[in-house]
């Protein structure tokens, strides 16, 4: 596995073209929007306390697009929910613009994998929800909501109800709804996970397009490595049990991104590297096999 890039005659993922290096250096020189400092999460279980996240630290810079990947159950959702303060912090610090966060707020918008539009509100009213929380006048809220819907390309659906929209469209409205609050960071937990491959590709294109139009920092959880490489500036790789930072990978793919890059050497080599990182080691696969055998025996 280790020498696949060599065999395929691919460059190392660490090799960055000058303009890529320049862009990444620029991002890293930007102010830190979100600083995660020795974050720990424990859940009480029957067998005692279980540590899900252990000393997770990283920094997200202004306008950065950071993906988080890792094996299933390593605590990605828990981590992003802690950033949104939907989950208590066991230990450590989360600093937003240098201030510790203590409760959920509009400064950290979130898009969930589940569809969470309010079904009793029209598309426009959904987008207006956060604006009304912020005490904007009805007129301003209305106007801004329509602008945001325009950005996600759904202005003509403003007066429909969520149930009348496809899954992809609902997620675009959810993105507009979160962005309308002008959050400092947009948290996305597998937002396209429930969509079919085609819609998913369209949504990725939309997201890249939105990012070009507006000034936004994004943390994006996915289990799709293509998606992670395609969208991100950097990819945070977590390992499981307990969840710890394994590596923060800089993506050597130039921007603007397009589907043709999926087959470029830098893209492939990065993807192969990520694959190696989250691929369970031989030891672990043996464990998995044992469990499967145990289950099989019990079933008999």
């Amino acid at each position: 596995m280790m020498d696949i890039p060599n065999k395929l005659n691919l460059p190392s993922y660490k090799e960055q073209a000058p303009e890529v290096k320049e862009r990444l250096d620029f991002i890293k020189s930007q102010p830190v929007v979100l600083e995660i400092d020795n974050l720990v999460k424990e859940f009480p279980t029957e067998e005692g306390v279980r540590r899900i996240l252990n000393d997770v630290s990283f920094k997200v810079h202004k306008r950065e697009f950071m993906s988080i990947i890792g094996p299933s159950g390593c605590g990605k959702s828990t981590l992003i929910r802690m950033l949104a303060c939907l989950e208590d912090i066991t230990d450590g610090l989360i600093l937003l613009d240098t201030y510790p966060v203590t409760e959920p707020g509009a400064d950290r918008g979130m898009v969930f994998q589940k569809y969470t539009l309010f079904p009793w509100l029209t598309v426009k009213k959904n987008v207006m929800f956060g604006l009304e929380v912020a005490n904007k006048s009805k007129f301003d809220a209305d106007r801004e909501a329509l602008q945001w819907l325009d950005i996600v390309g759904l202005e003509e659906y403003a007066d429909l109800y969520p149930a009348q929209l496809s899954g992809g469209m609902q997620q675009r409205v959810a993105i507009a709804r979160a962005l309308a609050n002008k959050p400092k960071v947009l948290l996305m937990d597998e937002p396209f996970g429930a969509l079919d491959a085609q819609t998913r590709a369209k949504m990725q294109a939309y997201l890249l397009q939105i990012r070009r139009k507006i000034d936004i920092t994004i943390i994006f959880i996915t289990h799709d490595l293509d998606e992670a490489v395609y969208l991100s500036d950097r990819v945070l790789v977590l390992k499981a049990n307990p969840g710890e930072v394994q590596e923060l990978v800089e993506v050597p793919v130039s921007r603007p991104r397009g589907p043709e890059q999926f087959l470029s050497p830098e893209f492939l080599t990065t993807k192969i590297h990520l694959e190696e990182l989250i691929h369970p080691s031989v030891e672990e696969s043996k464990d998995d096999f044992k469990v499967v055998k145990m289950v099989a025996v019990e079933a008999e």
């Binding site: 949104a84 959920p104 509009a106 950290r108 918008g109 979130m110 969470t116 309010f118 929800f129």
Partner: peptide, 18 residues
């Protein structure tokens, strides 16, 4: 009631009354 809706509202800044 789907609690995810409540969480979504929280991330939009809504406080308990709302």
């Amino acid at each position: 009631v789907d609690f995810a809706l409540v969480e979504a509202a929280q991330t939009l800044g809504a406080k308990p009354g709302r």
